[in-house]
Simulated scan of single mutants.
Amino acid sequence: MRIWTNEAGDSSFEEGHLALPGGHDGDAIGRTFPASSISFRETRPDQALEWHDAPTHQLVLTLGGTLVFTTRDGSSFVIRPGDVLLAEDTTGSGHVWKLIGDDPWRRAYVILPEGAEAGFTATR
């Protein structure tokens, strides 16, 4: 999933995938790209975060928990364990998220340096 700021200044999202062009013996391997840092975080069940932008260009790797993200126009999408979110909406009206279910949200933040490409391709 990718979330970014559209021309109107609102967060928008689209489904897609990260490129995995290499590999052998049944494996698909993505190209390497630089990362500034990685950190881990856990949020208790039944939590939410009100309107905000992504603090930086980052990949959010969900390890546990399920949550729903909503944008200002009322559109929403669900993130589940194993999903990767490319967060690029660092300006504009932002988004909200709310945990659903009984599991905490466990995730890793991979901070991408300025200009780094994660190899995201939208599903058309």
Rank of each mutant, 00 (worst) to 15 (best):
A8K: 15
G9V: 00
D10Y: 05
D10T: 05
S11Y: 02
S11A: 15
F13S: 03
F13W: 12
E14A: 14
E14V: 14
E14I: 04
E15I: 02
E15R: 14
E15H: 10
G16R: 10
G16D: 09
L18V: 06
L18N: 00
A19G: 08
A19N: 07
L20K: 15
L20D: 04
L20E: 15
P21H: 03
P21K: 05
G22R: 13
G23C: 11
H24E: 09
H24T: 08
D25V: 07
D27L: 13
A28H: 13
A28L: 11
I29G: 01
I29K: 02
G30F: 02
T32I: 06
T32L: 13
T32R: 13
T32K: 03
T32Q: 11
F33S: 00
F33T: 01
A35W: 08
S36E: 15
S37F: 04
I38S: 09
I38V: 11
F40E: 12
E42K: 13
T43N: 11
R44H: 13
P45D: 07
P45A: 10
Q47A: 15
Q47K: 13
A48H: 06
A48W: 08
E50L: 09
W51L: 04
D53I: 12
A54D: 06
A54N: 12
P55F: 02
Q58D: 01
Q58W: 00
L59I: 13
V60H: 00
T62N: 09
T62M: 07
L63W: 03
L63I: 15
G64C: 11
G65C: 03
T66Y: 02
T66K: 10
L67V: 00
V68H: 00
V68Y: 02
F69R: 02
F69M: 07
T71S: 09
R72A: 11
R72S: 13
G74K: 06
G74H: 06
G74M: 07
G74C: 05
G74Y: 04
S75C: 05
S76V: 04
F77R: 10
V78S: 03
V78F: 02
I79S: 09
R80A: 07
P81H: 05
P81Q: 07
D83G: 08
D83P: 03
D83Y: 01
L85M: 12
L86A: 02
L86W: 06
A87L: 00
A87M: 08
E88M: 03
E88Q: 13
D89T: 08
T90F: 00
T91H: 13
T91Y: 11
G92N: 11
G92F: 03
S93E: 15
G94C: 14
G94W: 06
G94Y: 12
H95D: 01
V96R: 15
V96F: 02
